[in-house]
Design a protein around this nucleic acid. Structure first.
Lengths: 376, 376
DNA sequence: ATGAAAGCGCTAACAT
DNA sequence: ATGTTAGCGCTTTCAT
């Protein structure tokens, strides 16, 4: 329920200056109003203390008597004081420096897009004293990733977001980095157990379950075999998706036989012959779940076989290729994670850590489902 | 592709201070580094002009000679100067005031939630000099809505977001408001043609098409009748959804017969008997598309009939009720729009207008699809 | 066309 | 435990 305001009819109460201060549009460029805000000066005066003391109370710093604290608090409430975030940020001349460590993205549109989003965020946040750098490492190469992680020092960088492969040495490198006081979040794919603050990405078990559910329902009771194609099970996210997929398939669609997973290394050229082989080998193949990149290989193999209308396909990540496949009817649904959201959430989480906010929980990245009809 | 940085090995170049300024963690609370930024002072010195002139150039103000402009620009580039958004905001003591006009939300969880999100945004943005007020009007009552809109003055409020019914008088009231210099965005449901800046909401035609596609595919070739339930076709969004739904149904699933739409006024109590009636009247009813609120009425009618497993149901908005129905299997999919995103986009659009940014295009709100397996 | 100077509201040394 | 003071980097009069 919207409660009526306490000053009579809603409409007339609209936008009235709560403090009753003088104001006016004179001199205000564009459509913003110049105002005299309630400041800590006002609070200080009301409470009969100095600015410094008000600051101490507002920021929960030590060294203020209980009595003073409550006087200041009362003044704050009474005057309806709200701190000005701009002034506060200006006064503390701090800068946040974060690093994004991503696999080299030559052949993989999802990673290329993620990298683009990191760049975009770096540009947007430059005027907010957040400096973001990117460092690449060789895809799937944990030694190279470790080299990069080991080279990061807390003096240079207070937070790292990394799209990591899930191997013991990487886990170790992350833990060491955290030990050096650097905040780490894993991005897209997790490394566990590790001391990272969080994994910023979709719930991949859920994603796998959704894929199973959609394939099963779209098949409407038809029986047959289902192929599962991953990039690599060294990637935690792919492993998770497969897990969720198998779980739901087993429980809800026992008439469908899941074939052993094949790994295409997120590479279309490598994936295509593998899928072509499966199609040839299994005339009763009725569905494919593609949980990694390399969709182009799947599309090509399917369309070459002429069976694209008979095989229900659910893939991951909306890219130029998957989009075209969706429109053509070769793909039936695409499960997507919005890279921009992931970057934003990662920055937020790293910043919260750097600012010492305990218990900050970044929002979960949503699992987007696209069919032909809701393409953006 | 991630390009290697221009200072040798990526890792050692990480987070190096680009201006070569002195810095260090001494005195820096938490994990942020105190820095001496490149300021307009530096730019002024480099260009041999005063601060005021640099400011004029940076903000494209008039009264600077072309020669000076280019000298300043050169200095900016050379020093890699980035304006500090915090300092800029502090210096211009401006405040943005916006108004959200929503229908009274007593019975409708979606609107109640939207209202909650507006409140939350108001709280979050209070320290950023954005003041948001809410004003309710009687649901579906265009006279009351007009009364509210007519009472808004540009002096008090520079932007309005409104969840409107699409009637001629409302259109007129919006146009008048815009004529008075107030920026207006429609929220969730559009009013066209009107002079509003934008409609912040999902693409409802798409949403309708998705619903049709899902119902059709989930039915897997079964024939029968489909019921369509709207809140009211006076709501542009419901009308749009119906349009998209019918379009896709006609084109892709001709074996399904769409029954004439019924209007439940977004009210469960009113909707329930209507749906119960349809179920009784049409033993071959195989699907329901609920495009408005009042889902509880549909759920109750269905579960009372015992046919909830045989009828494929797609509804809108994830609420406590629809969520439960999804888990129980009574609903098969829920199409959702994230209220928080809509509020955020609305504020951005209104702010861009108030700041005189021409051609700002707010991002489209995504259409979320939920099935049992990706519930958040 | 350009410059000097006074803030914006808060924080953080340094005093007391 | 509390106060004084000097900025943070930009914008904005008001002069010239």
């Amino acid at each position: 329920m919207i409660r009526a305001t306490d000053r009579g009819p809603a409409v007339t109460a609209v936008c009235r200056d709560p403090a009753g201060n003088a104001r006016g549009r004179a001199g205000a460029a564009e459509g913003a109003v110049r105002v005299r805000r309630v400041t800590i000066r006002d609070v200080a005066a009301e409470a009969g203390v100095s600015l410094a003391t008000v600051d101490r109370v507002l920021n929960d710093r030590k060294g203020v008597s209980a009595a003073t604290i409550s006087r200041v608090r009362a003044a704050v409430d009474h005057l309806d004081f709200r701190r000005d975030a701009f002034a506060a940020s200006l006064a503390t001349s701090r800068e946040h420096r974060f690093l994004f460590v991503l696999p080299e993205s030559g052949r993989n549109s999802f990673m290329a897009n993620l990298d683009r989003e990191v760049q975009a965020a770096a540009g947007r946040l430059a005027d907010q004293r957040i400096r973001i750098r990117r460092v690449p490492y060789h895809e799937f190469n944990d030694a190279d990733l470790c080299r990069v992680l080991d080279g990061i020092s807390a003096e240079e960088c207070m937070g790292v977001a990394v799209v990591a492969v899930d191997t013991p040495s990487v886990r170790e490198a992350i833990n060491t980095l955290v030990g050096r006081g650097v905040g780490v979040v894993t991005l897209v794919s997790d490394v566990t157990p590790s001391r990272r603050l969080d994994c910023i990405g979709i719930n991949n078990m859920s994603a796998g379950r959704v894929a199973a559910s959609l394939i099963g329902r779209f098949l409407g009771g038809r029986a047959g075999k289902i192929a599962t194609v991953a990039g690599s099970l060294v990637l935690f996210d792919h492993a998770d998706r497969l897990h969720g997929f198998n779980q739901t398939m087993a429980r809800e669609f026992p008439q469908l036989l899941i074939l052993p997973v094949i790994e295409g290394r997120d590479d279309s050229a490598a994936t295509r012959p593998l899928v072509a082989g499966l199609l040839a080998q299994h005339p009763d193949l009725v569905g494919i779940y593609s949980m990694g990149a390399g969709n182009r290989g799947i599309i090509e193999a399917l369309e070459a076989s002429g069976r694209q209308r008979d095989v229900v396909v659910v893939a991951h990540e909306l890219t130029a290729h998957s989009r075209r496949a969706l429109i053509a009817g070769t793909f039936d649904a695409v499960i997507h994670q919005e890279a921009a959201d992931e970057v934003e959430n990662a920055v937020r989480a790293l910043k919260a850590f750097a600012d010492g906010q305990v218990g900050y929980v970044p929002p979960r990245v949503r699992i987007d489902i696209f069919v032909r009809d809701n393409l953006p």
